[in-house]
Design a protein around this nucleic acid. Structure first.
Length: 256
DNA sequence: ATGGCCTGCAACGCAGGA
């Protein structure tokens, strides 16, 4: 089974690229973030035509997540329990015996911002929810734009970014707490190229100059970690015309 | 690097992203 995640920065703009990419890679599950579409605007017909059943949890203009699955999804959850939130940022479903949680963690804007405090509160609630989900689902995968670069090797210029939003110590500690809940960073289970990133600013030719961050992640429970035989970032879509600023991440699970 | 771009909404620039 292949699981994938991609922040598409508007599904309306990126739908042809998403369908093309899903057709090439055929993941069992594809999690999307920043769909920026209300559910009644979601392109379900086009997605079904490519062999995927969509689940959407969206809102107007901002945020929005979706799960595209090749087999039936069950036990759908659209919010972090006990955490009131206007923003549509999570979607969970069970697909093929795997509990899949698609997440779009708040950006935070800057460490001085109220949005940064919201991000830290959000991550704490998310961690508590994951702990509870892990009790119920030994086969758990968390996929999404987690908006934290966990280590300096996930940052093109750590000195320039030090203390900044996405790399600050409280955010990195919150990321570590997600792992401490019982999850592994699938990408780091394997040898990886240096300067492996999943996001590059649209400005300043950042992609060509390899000025990026690794902020999109796949986290796996112990049972899925044992089955994971590969985790890669596919930078090819970043070369497309009108690309998303994020690249997809794929994990491959054996005998799942 | 501290700007420069992209998206959506509804302006005739703004908010938000990261």
């Amino acid at each position: 089974m292949k699981l994938a995640t991609w922040n598409v920065n508007s599904l309306k703009v990126r739908l042809p690229q998403v369908l093309d990419w899903a057709g090439k890679h055929r993941p069992e599950v594809l999690c999307l973030q920043e769909t920026k579409l209300q559910n009644d605007q979601f392109p379900a017909v086009e997605i079904r035509a490519t062999g995927y059943e969509p689940l959407a949890n969206g809102q107007k203009t901002y945020n929005g997540v979706a799960i595209l699955a090749r087999s039936a999804a069950a036990d759908v959850v659209t919010a972090i329990p006990g955490f009131p939130d206007e923003q549509k940022r999570v979607l969970a479903a069970t697909v093929g015996g795997v509990r899949v949680i698609c997440a779009y963690v708040p950006n935070g804007e800057s460490v001085e911002s109220d949005k940064y405090q919201y991000k830290l509160r959000w991550l704490a609630a998310f961690r508590d929810w994951l702990k509870a989900e892990l009790v119920q689902h030994p086969r758990l995968a968390v996929l999404g734009d987690l908006n934290v670069a966990p280590e300096n090797r996930d940052v093109h210029d750590p000195a320039a970014w030090e203390g900044n939003v996405l790399v600050s110590v409280p955010e990195r500690n919150a990321f570590k707490e997600l792992l401490a809940a019982g999850l592994k960073d699938a990408f780091r289970l394997f040898e990886q190229p240096e300067r492996s990133f999943t996001w590059w600013d649209y400005r300043m030719n950042a992609f060509r100059r390899k000025m990026g961050l690794r902020i999109d992640h796949i986290l796996l429970s112990d049972e899925l970690t044992k089955a994971c035989i590969a985790c890669t970032i596919d930078i090819e879509p970043r070369r497309n015309e009108r690309p998303s600023d994020h690249a997809p991440v794929i994990a491959e699970l054996k005998d799942i």
